[in-house]
Computed example of a mutant assay.
Amino acid sequence: MIGLSPAEWSALKLTLWLALSTTGLLLLLCIPLAGWLALGRSRVRAMVEVLVALPLVLPPTVLGFYLLLLLGPRGPVGQAAAALGLGPLVFSFKGLLIGSMLYSLPFAVQPLLDGFRSMRRELLDTAASLGAGPIERFFRVVLPLSRPAVLSAALLSFAHTLGEFGVVLMIGGNIAGETRVMSIAIYDAVEAFDFAEAHRLSAWLLGLAMVCLLAIQTLRRRQQARDGGTDQ
């Protein structure tokens, strides 16, 4: 890979795979979750929203510490995984994936919530009058019309996962080829006073983050233009 050594390329591949895996799994989880939060009527929705948003204000090391206790060999989740033959969760890619999903959860849920809640109610009422049930209305009306929100959630989750440090360091450590992602590689390079390597790795992450943010801005401008045309 241009500008990267084999070890640096390994860290980049692992980071991209972690970001893609986290994004895909979060979309599968968060689309129905955001739909329930936006359109459901349960009294516990407010508390669930608070729990979902908690990683936004919680220090990453705090989240990583409690995950370490839960996923470790003496933790309930770690013991259950061992009993099922899934192997250790801490200091493994599986542990990184769990931590990344929890830490990036609000970045996936919030754009979806905004998109679902902006849905015009008369569209849902019309679908209901034609005999569509709640699930059918969601998948045939809400979800197709919320495509920009889904794309924004995917891009934000991907971009946020690229820069994770505290959580992945706490539960993944620094194992080359297994848990050594780009952010940890940058930290190692700075500690070793290898600023040339730190610059190379940082430039790659900066470029990827800028591409994601430019894509999000483009989606928002198109959505605003579409909404403006609809209002007229």
Rank of each mutant, 00 (worst) to 15 (best):
V77I: 15
G78L: 08
G78C: 11
G78S: 11
G78A: 10
G78T: 05
G78Q: 09
Q79C: 00
A80H: 01
A81C: 10
A82D: 14
A82Q: 14
A82R: 10
A83I: 05
A83L: 14
A83H: 10
A83N: 09
L84F: 13
G85A: 05
L86E: 13
L86W: 15
G87L: 12
G87F: 08
G87W: 03
G87A: 12
P88Q: 09
P88E: 12
L89Q: 04
L89C: 09
V90S: 10
V90F: 02
F91M: 10
F91G: 08
F93R: 12
F93S: 14
K94W: 07
G95R: 01
L96W: 04
L96A: 10
L97E: 05
I98A: 06
G99T: 01
S100D: 01
M101G: 09
M101L: 14
M101C: 13
M101T: 02
L102R: 00
L102H: 01
L102W: 07
L102P: 08
Y103T: 03
Y103K: 03
S104G: 09
S104P: 04
L105E: 03
L105K: 02
L105C: 07
P106H: 06
A108H: 04
V109M: 01
Q110C: 02
P111S: 11
P111V: 04
L112Y: 01
L112M: 06
L112P: 03
L113N: 03
D114Q: 15
D114S: 15
D114A: 15
D114I: 12
G115K: 04
G115S: 13
F116V: 05
F116M: 11
R117L: 13
S118V: 00
M119E: 12
M119H: 09
M119I: 12
R120D: 15
R120S: 10
R121P: 08
R121E: 13
D125P: 06
D125H: 07
T126D: 07
T126L: 13
A127N: 11
A128I: 07
A128G: 15
S129I: 11
G131Y: 05
A132E: 14
A132L: 15
A132V: 07
G133R: 00
G133I: 02
P134E: 15
P134M: 14
I135L: 15
I135P: 07
I135V: 15
E136H: 11
E136C: 10
F138T: 09
F139S: 10
F139G: 05
R140F: 10
R140S: 15
P144I: 00
R147F: 12
R147P: 06
R147W: 14
P148M: 12
A149H: 00
A149V: 01
A149N: 02
V150P: 08
L151G: 01
L151W: 07
L151R: 00
A153N: 02
A153I: 02
A153V: 04
A154M: 13
A154L: 06
A154T: 05
A154P: 12
A154N: 08
L155V: 06
L156C: 03
L156D: 05
S157Q: 01
A159L: 01
A159F: 02
A159R: 00
A159N: 04
H160D: 01
H160Y: 08
H160F: 10
T161Y: 04
L162G: 09
L162A: 10
L162K: 09
G163T: 03
G163K: 03
G163P: 08
E164C: 04
F165I: 11
V167A: 03
V167Y: 01
V168W: 02
L169N: 07
I171H: 04
I171V: 14
I171M: 11
I171S: 03
